[in-house]
Structure formats: structure tokens, C-alpha cells
Write a protein that binds this DNA or RNA. Sequence first.
DNA 1: CCCATATAGTTCAGGACACATACTAATTCT
DNA 2: AGAATTAGTATGTGTCCTGAACTATATGGG
Lengths: 405, 405
Amino acid sequence: MRDRDGGLTMAPGRVGDVRRRNLALVLGCIGPDTRATRADIAAATGLTKASVSSLVSELLETGLVEELGVTRAGERGRPGVGLALSSRPVALGAELNVDYLAVGAVDLHGNLHFHEVAEAPNRGRAPREVLGELSGLAARCASAAMDAGMTLLGGGLAVPGLVDPARGVVLAAPNLEWRDASLSPALGELAPEAPFGVALSNEADSAALAELWYGHGSAFGAYLYVSGEVGVGGGLVMGSKLFAGPGGHAGEVGHVVVEPGGRRCSCGGRGCLETVAGQEAILAAAGITDGGSTTAARMAALQAALEAGDAQAITAVERAGHYLGIAVVSAARVVDLSAVVLGGHFAALSGWIRPALLSSLDGFAPGVIAQEAVAFSELGTTAALRGAAGAALRRALAAPYALLA
Amino acid sequence: MRDRDGGLTMAPGRVGDVRRRNLALVLGCIGPDTRATRADIAAATGLTKASVSSLVSELLETGLVEELGVTRAGERGRPGVGLALSSRPVALGAELNVDYLAVGAVDLHGNLHFHEVAEAPNRGRAPREVLGELSGLAARCASAAMDAGMTLLGGGLAVPGLVDPARGVVLAAPNLEWRDASLSPALGELAPEAPFGVALSNEADSAALAELWYGHGSAFGAYLYVSGEVGVGGGLVMGSKLFAGPGGHAGEVGHVVVEPGGRRCSCGGRGCLETVAGQEAILAAAGITDGGSTTAARMAALQAALEAGDAQAITAVERAGHYLGIAVVSAARVVDLSAVVLGGHFAALSGWIRPALLSSLDGFAPGVIAQEAVAFSELGTTAALRGAAGAALRRALAAPYALLA
DNA sequence: CCCATATAGTTCAGGACACATACTAATTCT
DNA sequence: AGAATTAGTATGTGTCCTGAACTATATGGG
């Protein structure tokens, strides 16, 4: 049953909810380095010092928070005890992509540890086999973390495709040639002991969140992330969270119509952004048909051509930037955004894409997206992995009571 | 200060919050006709019968809920007492538009009472003067409601322009030629006694919500509402609420780029939907330059031309439908929607627009928006007013404790 | 007609938790 | 050294949900 506002908030409010909420609230005031004291938190939240004390002592029990010892000499009065997020709890981040597998452990300070990448031709390979290999990497990473005295809270696995996070199923991953692949048993084995489990996510969504937490997004608060890969994906971040949309697939700018008279798209539509700004489309327009059999190798050849000043290559990339601008404007209009972060090959080609994109934005919607609000990702291939791990960390921070006896 | 999830939930959870939440929760189980009993509610919410009894008795005090007397004979056991939303509380809905003013009172069953429309040439008129006239209408409506034994909870005023609801300011209403007009003192006078005050809203947003609560939207749950007026506005409804976006102006499909090589738009951009599907654009393409000085009169002439089978008029409208489809597809892709409701002149021209729109949707994004998911508004000119009143009613239902001593 | 059974709703003790107030602790200013 | 100032803790009170016992009102079988 749904309440009148449509939220699934049919659960009754119990007395204990207040404490749970306040635990998360207090934890939210404690940053990696803020050295907030109990008194600061009381002032910030409006809770009494008594309540904060009691809440903090429970948070200390969870291991998420540490006391830093007496802080701030020089002012009058008894000095407070600084509180900060511990750097011992970590989450496992993993990415399963067409050409490689990657894992790493991210702590609450945002540091990436034990990062490891393994090349692997996963296209068309059986999910079981791929996950077996990933499992080995994850186990190494997890045991290295254990040896370093860290504790594993949870994990996240990002894949290039449509997922159902609740059931742990990859609905469709065309570039892997997977359909309806249930990863949920394998996810459990990636981090068996982790209290918050391992969640499945879309790679573009995870990268979008990584940008928010560890990259450029933090400066914006609300933005569209566009990830250029073989396809063109995207994620919408607003109010410091991913906006999934009613069906869970919001932010798919790859199939916004940017050229009504344009080519057919694999989605069945026509004139989609992907048909003019996807990797294959750019390569074709640039006339790069050789340079290696894989798309990645040919992208490298494109880069070389651009650096050599090849006119056809430059035109091809500028054209992509132009159409990218149209899609961004349309998205900005629909959801009222004013910033974009570009990742994947758009980031790699930023030098050539940026001017075309800016002039397109200015031509189609002057003033909507400022120059400073166009950012290019610097997280590279760690983005998805960091985002997946970050999401797991935030699940823990949102439910600290789950760590209490 | 914001917590880690970005919500402005920095307010501490207090013990009393539980009750407030549960009051709204229980109220959410009581519909206009559901005849839910206390026992039903206990079962549905998970609250104990004791708690529900206590909560219900407070809700009865607010006057929002009524006991219908003993219900359900024929089954074993003591019969329960049916509960339903009272039809005495109402909210005032008002619309201030270019050509007319309208008011009405909407009750919790969704019935519109004392609806009154007054033609008024408001373009370029001073806000004070217009609101004075509106005030007279509102007073008549309110006193009629009082005489009928109703109580006024709150109200809403919808205007065709960008608003800041929090401050009660019309930021820009080009068709009224208003800029930065503060209506907040006048809003207070529209319903001085109403405990929930009078809120200012955008007309398209209100119409979008009216569709959700009193029209086609209830069948969809999530949809894009596109309102064709002089300009083309819109509202995004998801999760049974209006999605405002980070800046508060989401759903503005009027300026989605649908024709990259197209005409300049008043917004400074190029190829916007409004330049091909706004009233002026359609009229110009249809070759209708006479038929009266006002746009409304010329739209009537267009209608006549269409009915007479005028080829140029038909082509013009079909062209608008074609481009409307492109904008809808782009919006659907960005926020993952699968339904549209069309209002304003799009609804008036539905017979001619519908086929063109459907074929456009099918061409650009087959399968994304099904035929059954394209609806045309039937609320006509009461839409904005009903939406504004409905929002006021829902504010009351969300905060029933505000009505208690 | 009376009693078993079933369901609706109320009363009351118990527990969780935030709050207010008063207290102790630790530091700086004079 | 003592006053002033700020941090953090201890204790009693009020709110409100829970659970169990209780009352109220219906049906159905003997």
C-alpha cells in the first residue's frame, strides 16, 4: 500500500526510528577531517549535548568513527575531543568491463587501496567464468585489506549494462553479450563477511557518483554525467544523489534525438546521440578503419590522428561535440540542470571536443550551462569502481545502527 | 548544513516526529470512500490497534476525517466503524491567466464547488489591480463555501510564468508582462483565515498535478505533462509528485531542441519546440493571420480551418505533432518516462495532432511510449485551478497535526 | 434463547528516547 | 590562585509506541 504522497512509507514510525535517524544525522556531521566535537555537532543538529554524547558513544562502537584526542588549544574553555571518520573501514569496488576487470578498496577518506586491473576479453564470455576470475582478484584485495587492519563493510560491482540492483541481475549488457544474467550468488561470494553485502550497479551511474564524491561533481551538486564508451551512457545526479527515474534508467542521453533526419540507431530510433557521438560513429566519420581490431586500439589511433592535425579526424570529433551539446541542452531543459561532467572518450578527447561543445551549448541555449559548468572527468578508469565502492560506504553511513549488536 | 545524502534533513528527529509521521500515515489510509476501519488501518500500517485508535481520535478532531457509522453487516464479530475523509474541508483554487480569472473550491473528494470564471484582459495590467479583482471573486467563493458549512483549509493561485513559491514572487510572466512581482501580501488576503495559507504556483505545474489527482495521470503514476499555450510549458510528475528539479523549473520541454537547423527562439536558442509547436508558430505555418486580434480567436479560426479540411492548416498541426514527438522522446530518455499527457491547445487539437505525434514517437523511439500512454487532458480550463487547490489540500493532509490545538 | 466464537475497539503498564537542568572536567584570562 | 568559559556527563520528566488484558457487538449452533 502506498501513502498519498506515493512514497512507500507505509512502515509505521516507531520510537526507535528517531534514534536511527539521529544516529545517521550525527554521523553525517562527522567528516574525514572535520575534527567535529560533540559540542559542535549539538550546535549543528539542534540536538542536546546529552543526546549527542549518547549517540556518539554508539557510533564509536560501530567502528566508523574515531576519537582524535583533545583538539584546539589556544581558546578559552575545556577543549573538545575531535571526532572523525575512521580510515579502517573500507568497501570493495569492482568493475567488470569489456576489456578488463578491476578491483580496489576505498576507505571513508576516499583513498583507493590495493587497486588492481587485469586485462580480460570478457565479450561473449560466460558470466560464471568472468565472475570466477573477478572473485580471485576480489579475494586478494580483501585479504590485503584485512592484513592492513581494515574491515570490510560492503562492496559494489559496476557493469556496462542495464541492471536490476534489487535482484542482482544484469538485464542486458550488449557489449558483453549478456542478457538476464543473475549475478546474485556470485555477488555474495565477493565479500562474504561484509555486513552490507555487494550491490550491482550500472557503470555509468557509478561513474557519475564517483564524480560527485571524488571528482568534479562536488563543485556542482546537480549535474548530468555523460559517459562516452562504445555506447553513450549517462547518469543524472541531483540533490547529491543519483536520480534513477521511475523506471530506473534516467540519464540515458545516448538516445536523445539530436538529428531528426539522421541515421537509424541500434535502439530502433533515428538520429540518436549515439549514432553521431558513440566511439564507432566518431571513428567512422574520422575515416579510421584500421589501427587495430579493438575499438580501444582504434580510439588510440584517432587520438594520434588528432595530434597530427588530421582534418577529417578533427571535423569528426567537433561534429560529435556539436551534437553532444544539443543532447545536453535538451536534458538540461527537461530536468533544469546547469552543469555537465563528461567522462569516457569525451574526457580523453576533451581538447578537441570542448570548443565545439561550448559553442553548441551557447548556440542552442545561451546562458543555461556556463563554461565553468562543463567539466571533464579526471578519474579515468577508476571512476566506476570508486563509485561502486562509494555507494557501499554510503549505505553503511546511512544505516550505522546495522553495525551495532 | 546538509547531511551526507544531501537532504536538508538537518533537523533532529524528536520523539514527537513519530506521532506526526504516524498521523499522516493513518490519514493516508483513509480515502474519500474507502470506509476503512481502525482495524483495517492497523493491519495496513503495522501499527497496533491501540495506536491507531489514539491517532484516529486526533484526526477526528482536525475535522479532516469523519466516522460513517457502523459498517459491514453479515460477517461475524463486532462490526467496525467506517472512516472517510470529510467533505466539509475545502481549498480555494484560483487561476490568473492572460484572458481570464477563475476561482473555485475543491473538497477532499475532488469535487469542484462554486466555480466562477471572469473574463479579464490581464496582459500588461498592474498586478495590484488584477489581484484586487481576483480577491473579490475569491471572497465570494469563500463565503459561499462558509454558508454551505464548509471550512477553508488553504488555497493556491496558479499563474502563467516562473514563480518562487517560497517568497510568493512572480519572477517572470512574459504573457502578462510581469517581472519580479511580489504577490505575497495579496496571497494572504485571498484566504486570511485559512490555516495553510495560499501558495503561488506555475500554471503548467498545477495543471500537471491536476491531471494526476483528477485526470488521466492517475493511470500512469509517472508522466510528462505538456501544456500548449502561447508558449509551451510542461511539468514532470513522478512518484506521484511534481518533480521540480534542482532549480525548480524542470519539465520545460518548450525549449528542448527539436530542429537543430531551425529558427531562433525568444529564449536566445535555436530550434526549440516552442518555435514550431507554440500557438503563434502553428498559426503562422497554417497561414492564419486574421480571425481576430487575440491569439485565442485565431486559434478558434485554426480549429475551423481544420474542420473544413484546409490542407495548409492540417500540415501545420501535423508538423507540430511531429516535433512534439521529438521533444517527448528526448524527455522520456532523459528521465525514463513512459507516458505523456497533453493539455492546452494540444488537447484542443488532439484529433489532428495525435496521429502525427504517435508516428513521430514510433519513428524516433519505438516502444518507449505506448499508444495507450499518450493521453489528452479533459480538464480544460479548470486544470490549473484544481491543481492549485489540490496542492493546498495535500499540504493539509501531509501535516494534519497543524490543525490540532 | 443462550453460549461459543470472532472481530472491533479501549485501557493500562512498560520501555525507549529526547529534553531540560544540574553537575563535573579542563582549559584560558586576569 | 581564582574567575570565566567551554566540553561533556548524569538524572528526572514527558511523549508515544507496544503488548496484553479487557469490553463491546456481531454471527452461528444447539
